[in-house]
Structures are given as structure tokens and as C-alpha cells.
């Protein structure tokens, strides 16, 4: 009897051991590249071209890699600012536009309502990679070529199918009685939307904002095509230029610093708002 119990306990312990062993191994595989890159980026300038063995700074903590990254383009601050402006601008505009559209689609009746909704969602089927050439020309005609505003507008458009869908669902979930009550109290239209309904659809807004921020912060091809002026480059374009090398030599320290600057905000936003991110993912998957 006792031996049986012991055997079961031993098996459970072994099971838990192999479970956690596998888990830790997987976590290392998926996280180690980040940890090694971030640690390596703080090595001394003389170590930058050496393999990261060990990955942490051995000659003391140093910002050399960031200093040399700063010597590319218009300086790392300028490019971080470009990326931040585009990403935050995209998030804000996407929220505003999809909030209004989601409200309109959820609460109003008008001609071609369903057709227009399907039209917005259907753009998901068309990859933006296939319309970059005309986009380039249309933006030039509008005087928005090589401009961060033009790029932001393109990014907002790319976010709309997902965001409008999310926001319409968010409004659909709000009981109509709340609106009726607010109407009786005299709140109408935009005031009703902002004062009464906005707090109720806030989780949807956060989800929409996170996806808009991350996608536009990380986007590469459109930025590569639509921005031609060096000082306008967003971070991914800058760092890929660093990787391409200068005078035949590649400054790997600057690449490590660049990857750190690009990925840390994403990891931070994700860890902070994981719940909302996963909600968006599930909504997309279930749809």
C-alpha cells in the first residue's frame, strides 16, 4: 500500500519535473535571444565585434553601442521620435476613427450599412504589399510622400478592418437602456458617446490602441518605400541601414543597441497590457 503510494508520488514528482524542465528549456529558447542582445548592447565598444561570450559586459557597463548608433542618420533620438510619433499618432487616430465608425455601425440605420461594413472588413483580404506602388503615387499627388503624416494615414487605414470590427462588437455589447437613460438626462450625440459610452467600451479601445501602436511601430516595408528622406526614417529603416554597413564594415554593437531600442517598448507594452492584447487576438481568431 505504502509502496504504491510512494510510486505514485514519485511518478507525479517525475511528471512535474519533466514538465517544468521542458517549460524552462522552452522559455530559455524564446527569451534568451532578447536577454543576450540587451545585455550585449551594454558591452564596451572594444567588445562589440566579439562574440557575446559571456553575454554580459565584462569590462564594465558602457553606452558605447548607443553612442555609435547615435552617429547614424539624424541621431537615434530623432529616429525614435519619428517612430514614436507615427506609432502614437496611428494609435490615437485609429481609436478615434474606429470609435466613431463602430458607434455608427452599431447604433444607426442607414443605406448600404451592411455593404459598407463588409467593404471595410473585406480589405483584410487584400494585402497592402500589393498596393504599395499606387499608394506611393497617390501620396505623392497629395503632397504626402516622404512624410510621417502620410505614413500614419496609411497605417491607420491598415488597422481599420480589425479596429472597426472590434469597436462595433464593443458597442453591440452595451445595453441600449443605458443610452436611453442618458438621452432622457439630456446627453446627445458626441457628448453621449464621450461621456457615457466611452468608459463602457474602454477595454475595446485599449485593445485597438495596442495593436495599432505595435503594428505601426514595427512595420518595415511601407516605411521603406514611402520615406525617402534620411531624417524621416523610422527605427526599423534606420537599423536595417546600420546592418547594411558603412564602408564595408558592419557595426554590430549599434545593431544590438538598435534591436534593444526597437523591441523593449513592444515587450513592455505587451507585458503591461497582456490581457487586452490576448482579447484582441482571440476576437480575431474566433471571428
Amino acid at each position: 500500500m505504502t509502496t504504491k503510494k510512494e510510486a505514485r508520488a514519485r511518478r507525479a514528482l517525475f511528471g512535474a519535473g519533466s514538465y517544468h524542465g521542458t517549460g524552462i528549456l522552452l522559455a530559455v529558447f524564446f527569451l534568451a535571444p532578447f536577454v543576450i542582445t540587451i545585455l550585449s548592447s551594454f558591452r564596451h565598444g572594444t567588445e562589440a565585434r566579439l562574440p557575446p561570450i559571456p553575454p554580459w559586459p565584462t569590462n564594465g557597463f558602457s553606452l558605447d553601442a548607443y553612442r555609435s548608433l547615435d552617429s547614424f542618420g539624424a541621431g537615434v533620438w530623432q529616429h525614435t521620435l519619428n517612430s514614436a510619433a507615427v506609432a502614437i499618432g496611428t494609435a490615437l487616430l485609429t481609436v478615434i476613427v474606429s470609435l466613431l465608425a463602430g458607434y455608427g455601425f452599431s447604433r444607426y440605420r442607414f443605406m448600404f450599412k451592411n455593404a459598407l461594413f463588409v467593404l471595410i472588413i473585406a480589405t483584410l483580404m487584400i494585402p497592402f504589399q500589393s498596393i504599395l506602388t499606387p499608394l506611393f503615387i497617390i501620396l505623392a499627388k497629395l503632397g504626402l510622400n516622404n512624410s510621417l503624416i502620410g505614413l500614419t494615414l496609411v497605417y491607420v487605414t491598415l488597422q481599420l478592418p480589425f479596429s472597426v470590427f472590434m469597436m462595433r462588437n464593443a458597442f453591440d455589447a452595451v445595453p441600449k437602456e443605458i443610452e436611453e437613460a442618458a438621452r432622457i438626462d439630456g446627453a446627445r450625440d458626441l457628448r453621449l458617446l464621450v461621456r457615457v459610452l466611452l468608459p463602457l467600451v474602454l477595454p475595446g479601445i485599449v485593445t485597438v490602441a495596442i495593436f495599432a501602436f505595435l503594428n505601426s511601430w514595427n512595420e518595415f516595408l511601407a516605411a521603406l518605400v514611402l520615406l525617402s528622406d534620411n531624417s524621416k526614417f523610422t527605427l526599423p529603416i534606420l537599423i536595417s541601414a546600420v546592418r547594411a554597413g558603412r564602408l564595408g564594415a558592419i557595426d554590430w554593437g549599434a545593431v544590438q543597441a538598435g534591436v534593444t531600442v526597437m523591441s523593449v517598448p513592444c515587450l513592455f507594452v505587451f507585458l503591461l497590457l497582456q490581457r487586452y492584447y490576448m482579447r484582441g487576438l482571440m476576437a480575431g481568431a474566433v471571428k
Binding site: I96, L100, F105, Y108, R109, V154
Partner: peptide, 26 residues
């Protein structure tokens, strides 16, 4: 009716401008 269209107008303008038009233009 007009109000509903007004709410979705910004989204429609963007989608037409930067998606529908480019597809036709391609």
C-alpha cells in the same frame, strides 16, 4: 440616416482613399 453616415464617414474616406482607390489604380 445622415447621422449614421457621418459617424462612419472618416473610416470610409480613409478606406476609399488608401485602399479602394489604390486597388483600382493598380
Amino acid at each position: 440616416q445622415w447621422k449614421g453616415l457621418l459617424y462612419i464617414a472618416p473610416a470610409m474616406v480613409l478606406v476609399i482613399m488608401f485602399f479602394i482607390l489604390p486597388v483600382l489604380f493598380t
